[in-house]
Simulated assay, not measured.
Amino acid sequence: MSFRLAPHAASAGFQLEAHDVVSSTNALALDRAREGHPGNLWVVSKKQDGGRGRRGRPWATLEGNLAATLLKVLHNDLSHAATLGFVAGLSLSEALDAVAPNARISIGLDGGGGGNVRRFELKWPNDVLASGSKMAGILLESTMLPGGSLAIAVGIGVNVAAYPTDVPYPATSLAALGARADAETLFLALSDAWTDIERVWDGGRGLSAIRDRWLQRAAGLGSEVAVQLEGNIVRGIFETIDQDCRFVIRDAQGETIKIAAGDVHFGAVASAGSS
């Protein structure tokens, strides 16, 4: 099976550029924007060897996994551009539900918490978890275009056939969970789910509904967390995300802290007295 768009996505005007191997789907998507592509372009591959994660960390997509980037070009209100990452998380989790209904996933592990019973959970700001282990990561990169438009590459990397073992956190893959879906099948479902969820987002006008749906899948909601902020550790109870999708915790003194960017840790790491 080759990569293809869901009929719903194709009829909505999305386009597809598929590769066997790329250095970075995000970089290719931004190149297309600089070349004049108007956006709504999916760039996909089953192997990526030069990708990046958050804070410039290397992110390689192993053979058989999914590297997918959606190019969006925004012309007007850019204030909600960063919240496309939450659209991506919701779209991917719904696609995973669709293609892996029988995956062996435990509920309520350290990465879950809070009584959440959704099978694939969303870890703020940009990870998808299964049984507390990382299944996927999301990275938004952007560049300004002539005329003031903003090109955004919404990068989504998913462990389908394999997962990395040389990382400092638990990871898993669809294959490890007993699911038989391949990268092409997952992308088909992802392109379909994105089309519907972006319509809800509606250029940021529907962000409140996106926030509500994201919280239904939130990993660690109501549990103790530790957030690393440029060398400092902030601890507290994960209460919610606010209207701007910032991470909201309540510390031991009862103070509310709103965090725009940081690395979140659950379980034993969050409970430890030192970093």
Rank of each mutant, 00 (worst) to 15 (best):
A6G: 14
P7G: 12
S11E: 15
G13N: 06
L16Y: 09
A18K: 09
H19L: 06
S23K: 09
T25G: 03
A27I: 01
A29P: 00
R34S: 15
E35H: 11
G36E: 07
G39S: 08
G39I: 11
V44T: 09
S45T: 12
K46C: 06
Q48M: 01
G51W: 00
R55E: 11
A60G: 00
L62W: 04
E63R: 08
N65I: 02
A67T: 06
A67Y: 08
A68Y: 07
L74Q: 10
D77I: 08
D77L: 08
S79G: 11
H80D: 10
A81G: 03
A82L: 13
G85Q: 11
A88Y: 10
G89C: 09
G89S: 10
S91V: 11
L92H: 04
L92N: 05
E94P: 00
L96P: 12
V99I: 14
V99P: 11
N102F: 13
R104T: 12
I107C: 08
G113C: 04
G114Y: 10
R118N: 13
F120M: 07
W124N: 05
P125E: 00
D127W: 10
D127H: 05
L129F: 09
L129E: 02
S131E: 04
S133K: 14
A136E: 05
I138P: 03
L139H: 00
L139Q: 02
L145H: 09
G147Q: 12
G148A: 12
S149Q: 15
V154W: 06
G155F: 05
G157V: 05
A161V: 07
Y163R: 12
T165M: 13
D166H: 12
P168G: 07
A171C: 11
S173V: 12
A175K: 15
L177G: 04
D182K: 10
A183W: 01
A183I: 01
A189F: 09
W194V: 14
D196S: 15
G204T: 03
G206L: 13
S208K: 15
I210E: 02
L215R: 09
Q216F: 00
R217V: 09
A218V: 03
A218P: 02
E224Q: 14
E230H: 11
G231T: 03
G231Q: 05
G231D: 04
V234E: 08
T240Q: 09
C245D: 03
I249G: 00
I249Q: 00
D251R: 06
Q253T: 08
Q253Y: 03
G254C: 08
A260R: 11
A261Y: 12
F266Q: 02
A268T: 14
G273W: 06
